[in-house]
Design a protein around this nucleic acid. Sequence first.
DNA 1: AAACAGTGTTTCATATAATGAAACGTTTTA
DNA 2: TAAAACGTTTCATTATATGAAACACTGTTT
Lengths: 253, 253
Amino acid sequence: MNEDVKDLNLSVVKAFTLLDAFTMDKQEWGVRELAIKKGYNKSTTYRLLNTLESLGVLQKNDNDKYLLGLKLFELGNLVAIHKTLRKYSRTPLENIAREIKETVHFGVLDKNQVLYLNKTESPQGLKVSTQIGSYQKAYCTAIGKVLLAFLPEQKIAEYLKVVSLDACTENTITNPETLQKELQKIRAQEYALDMEELELGLICIAMPVYNNRGEVIASISVSGPSSRFKLENIESYISIIKKGAQAIEANMH
Amino acid sequence: MNEDVKDLNLSVVKAFTLLDAFTMDKQEWGVRELAIKKGYNKSTTYRLLNTLESLGVLQKNDNDKYLLGLKLFELGNLVAIHKTLRKYSRTPLENIAREIKETVHFGVLDKNQVLYLNKTESPQGLKVSTQIGSYQKAYCTAIGKVLLAFLPEQKIAEYLKVVSLDACTENTITNPETLQKELQKIRAQEYALDMEELELGLICIAMPVYNNRGEVIASISVSGPSSRFKLENIESYISIIKKGAQAIEANMH
DNA sequence: AAACAGTGTTTCATATAATGAAACGTTTTA
DNA sequence: TAAAACGTTTCATTATATGAAACACTGTTT
């Protein structure tokens, strides 16, 4: 059941493995520390970083540390996959954020995870913020649960077989049967809640976005701190999000 | 005066050279055609593409052609350079676009060229559209001329020494002295016009964005077809763009 | 001022891994 | 049915990526 043993170009694999070390939490790397982190030889790492720099894939900052470079910005903006979804979700997300005054996210399911395609941040100081292009566990996010809920039954079973439902907080649904019931509820009510299941203090509500064949292709969520996010507002949130979802659907057709 | 002869990892260089073939105009590539295009051996190209696919840097579409993959979307969104400018320009650009109803661009100078960091497209059917992350000649765009105009004198001289002012249209300024005078005028009036200098039928107006030390760090432009873009509207455009520029400046501080 | 940890960088012999021509499948076109 | 595309695999050859060690540079400590 393993991947075919392809003969990959190891230098290229290493280069991208190095790039994967650059995250929001750690944006800068020196030669030595990155070599240690990845278990590569110092010289090899030096030469790879040097090569990537000469290509504009990395660049050095004032402290001679490496940063992700503008070549990646350029290439990232050329990615065609989900481009129309990203483009047509922008304005509707902004409208939702303006009305609700909380952060709005937009994502799809990719490799059993939520892939965030777009967001508009809350104008408020205390706010949730997710990195566009990043991935998150599906089973403990509102967006993810919506996207799972509207998957074909067989795909859900497959998901539950492959993914282990590790607890992120005490509220995370870690039992497959409980999750199945939750997904059923979500299908019925057409929205999902995340009641601090991913992170304590963080509440989200998400709703589906359909294509013209009635299939769910994406999901919109609104996220806020539990201190502000009152359940009595849900009905109003739902109608605002629904309006946004319909705007995206209209744009796509 | 040449670069030091660095010893680069040739596989990595080749991999990114292949990636550079993926553009807006040509988003899909097969093994053979890309090998021919880049002058690489068929087998080598096959293995590199295969490697990039296994890393998520490329992916195959339904026709078994390669497309830029989501790994690049992920990495592109992690690029920290100019991130705050991109973030804080978004809403102001939208407001300008809403008022003027033409496409609004936002860019900086990078390696003697305009790098587009953000845009909001005109709601109208006939519109200009530039790829975010792409580069354009500075001397024949309104944004570029603004950014050049506010460069230190010495840098302008350097630019004129390095860059050859090739004509894009019959209106392109191809004479260095003429361009110097144009830049002087731009400094005085605090805006630049592109009167079909890059492309026939395309008119733009651009204004500077300052940092808190009074240096020009970016520029906003409004672009439209010459059929709609009337010079008598310039005064009104200027005040709207100026308001947007000030909004970005306020956001940045 | 000297020794000492930190860095990044270069060297060079060695082994590994990338290479390409050719042969092989597979699909599409004539 | 043949032919012409294409992607894929093979294998001997060659090139190049590799890593230990030495080197250079910087800032800190003694």
